[in-house]
Amino acid sequence: MTDDQQRFEPRIVGFLCNWCAYSGADLAGVSRLQSAPNVRILRVMCSGRVDPSFVFRAFQLGADGVLIAGCHPGDCHYQEGNHKALRRVLLLKRILRGFGVDEHRVRLEWISASEGEKFARVSTEFTEEIRSLGPLPLENGRLLHLPADEPSPVLAEVAG
């Protein structure tokens, strides 16, 4: 890890569903489980509400990573919203790859209302993962070019 990375504090946005993940995060708080302070949470009613364009917007506004957390499959308060979230995230990751954004910057987790420990662990782990990935190379809302000797991931996506 370079000095740059050691000083680098990731900024992570979390979309948490009201019924499971948000309650799980509250439980982590009630249990005083300490975790990294890098995750800023937005509450939505269901992980199915998360439009993939929110993720792009978050990156555009300066987020280095985005966490989406919903109920476990089968437990969604609205039956299957989390299934839709899963489908979208899979497609989203492919598109991000095409843009040259490391797909690990988006993470989908299933966290139930009783999984305070899991929420705390995921927050901290994800923060460290983003820290090692480094800041999202963005300047004035545009993705910076990659070093010249690396093949363009866009070409790889299209050719591959």
């Binding site: 939505v44 009613m45 269901c46 199915g48 509400r49 998360v50 439009d51 993939p52 308060h77 609205y78 919203g81 839709k84 979208r88």
Partner: peptide
């Protein structure tokens, strides 16, 4: 409608 928002996102 229960307000999950799935359609809104889609």
């Amino acid at each position: 409608c229960k307000g999950c928002g799935t359609c809104v996102a889609a």
